[in-house]
Computed example of a mutant assay.
Amino acid sequence: MSAPVQLPVTWFPRRTRAVLLPVSALLVVMFSAIAVALPANWQLNDRVAMVVSGLVFAGAGLMLARPKVSADAEGVTVVNFVRSRRLAWAEIVRVNFRQGDPWASLDLADGTSLAAVGIQAGVGHQQAVSAARALRDLVEGHGRAPAEV
């Protein structure tokens, strides 16, 4: 059995961010340099479009680097690619992370499920399993009354 997790805690794919954040910055620099280096017969709107393209690609990279799962005394915040959702501990029924799943998912009290992309197998299966177990332990410790767990 592992040591209990101390709150607050945040899980996120570190290697993914370590790659995507510098690559996003590099895209902006590269597309801007290309816009400046374009031949003289290219119009200003072409140059602006090149810079905007770099910003769009960088924005996509930043969006992919966004996912995280944060837990504190009041509950869990799940930040996925586009949306964030704040959950009270009692709203989470179970943490699932089955073999072959790309990321953990949370079964919620309203009968729905929520992907927790911040805990993902693609960046280290054992690390993701440990994070999912830690979140599961926190849910069991903070969640519903014992009769309902």
Rank of each mutant, 00 (worst) to 15 (best):
Met1Trp: 12
Met1Leu: 14
Ser2Asp: 15
Pro4Ile: 02
Val5Tyr: 01
Gln6Gly: 03
Gln6Glu: 12
Leu7Pro: 00
Thr10His: 07
Thr10Leu: 02
Phe12Asp: 08
Pro13Asp: 13
Arg14Thr: 13
Arg14Cys: 11
Arg14Ser: 14
Arg15Ile: 12
Arg17Cys: 04
Leu21Ile: 15
Leu21Lys: 10
Pro22Met: 05
Val23Gln: 01
Ser24His: 01
Ser24Met: 05
Leu27Gly: 05
Val29Thr: 13
Val29Asp: 02
Met30Asp: 00
Ser32Lys: 02
Ala33Thr: 11
Ala33Arg: 10
Ile34His: 09
Pro39Trp: 07
Asn41Glu: 15
Trp42Lys: 11
Trp42Ser: 13
Trp42Arg: 12
Leu44Thr: 05
Leu44Ser: 03
Leu44Val: 03
Arg47Gly: 02
Ala49Gln: 03
Met50Arg: 08
Ser53Trp: 06
Gly54Ser: 04
Leu55His: 02
Phe57Val: 01
Ala58Trp: 03
Gly59Ala: 05
Leu62Tyr: 10
Met63Thr: 13
Met63Gly: 01
Met63Ser: 09
Leu64His: 09
Pro67Ser: 02
Lys68Thr: 12
Lys68Phe: 15
Lys68Gln: 14
Ala71Asn: 09
Asp72Arg: 06
Ala73Glu: 15
Glu74Gln: 14
Glu74Cys: 00
Thr77Tyr: 10
Val79Thr: 14
Val79Leu: 14
Phe81Cys: 09
Val82Cys: 09
Val82Phe: 06
Arg83Trp: 10
Ser84Cys: 07
Ala88Gly: 13
Trp89Asn: 04
Ala90Cys: 10
Val93Phe: 09
Val95Thr: 04
Val95Glu: 05
Asn96Leu: 13
Asn96Ala: 14
Phe97His: 06
Phe97Thr: 04
Phe97Arg: 02
Arg98Met: 10
Gly100His: 00
Trp103Phe: 03
Leu108Pro: 10
Ala109Phe: 01
Asp110Met: 07
Gly111Arg: 00
Ala116Asp: 05
Ile119Thr: 02
Gln120Lys: 04
Ala121Pro: 03
Gly122Ile: 12
Gly122Asn: 07
Val123Lys: 00
Gly124Met: 08
Gln126Pro: 00
Gln127Phe: 11
Val129Ala: 13
Ala132Tyr: 03
Arg133His: 11
Arg133Cys: 06
Ala134Lys: 05
Ala134Cys: 04
Leu138Gln: 04
Gly141Ala: 03
Gly143Lys: 01
Arg144Ser: 14
Ala145Leu: 13
Pro146Val: 07
Ala147Ile: 12
